[in-house]
């Protein structure tokens, strides 16, 4: 079983009628550089969170605010949405019927929106306990980190809607295919950032 050489991150489409492997390679590599710089931003917010975790000023603490069950459900939602996006990219690569592509993209969008709704519900519950960003260094860094991730997911959901519009308007031409691949990388990377969030924020807050 010899696998073809990969030329860029994400699912490689190979040479389709619309798009050559070289075009995709250049277009995806630029976006990959952006994603890595985004990862550095998140890493520094993690460092900030790590230094602020004890700075609760007598207010809400990680143990009092973080519940395991919602975090677990959110994790499953985001992980499943990453897998359904992968399935959508395969549907695009092999030119499966449009409704299959839209079905998987729709499932991904639905999972992303439910994730955002649960996260908004978590934040609302925290606000109800007076756990708002201005309360302490711990809460400022928590909302900067998890809030920025939520904002990324919201942007990705909006981008997904735009992509469905582009597929309807232009069909799967070279530009649309590259944009879908880029969105796929973005979506998968958001799930990787979430792994760090549930480990460092939610699980650490519930240990002990």
């Amino acid at each position: 079983m010899s696998e073809p050489e990969l030329s860029h991150a994400g699912l490689n489409l190979g040479d389709t009628g619309e798009l050559t492997q070289d075009q995709a390679e250049n277009a995806i590599f630029g976006f990959w550089i952006f994603l890595m710089s985004d990862a550095v931003i998140f890493a520094l917010l993690f460092a900030t969170y790590g230094t602020m975790i004890a700075s609760t000023v007598g207010g809400p603490t990680p143990a009092s605010e973080f519940k395991l069950l919602p975090a677990f459900v959110e994790t499953l939602l985001l992980l499943t949405s990453s897998a359904t996006f992968g399935r959508a990219t395969i549907a695009m690569k092999y030119d499966e019927p449009r409704r299959v592509l839209f079905g998987w993209l729709g499932a991904t969008l639905g999972l992303g929106l439910v994730f955002l709704a649960l996260e908004a519900n978590d934040f609302a519950t925290m606000f109800a306990h007076c756990a708002y960003p201005m309360r302490s260094g711990f809460l400022s860094s928590f909302f900067a980190l998890v809030g920025l991730h939520g904002l990324h997911v919201a942007v990705a959901c909006f981008w997904l809607v735009v992509m469905v519009g582009q597929v309807c308007a232009y069909g799967l031409d070279a530009r649309v295919r590259i944009n879908l691949l880029r969105l796929g990388l973005f979506w998968h990377l958001l799930d990787i950032v979430w792994i760090a969030i549930f480990s460092v924020v939610y699980l650490q807050g519930n240990i002990g």
Partner: peptide, 14 residues
């Protein structure tokens, strides 16, 4: 598995 980065087959600098 999702981003298809591997040690041996990536020709670019990912």
């Amino acid at each position: 598995c999702f981003l298809h980065i591997s040690f041996k087959r990536s020709s670019r600098h990912d």
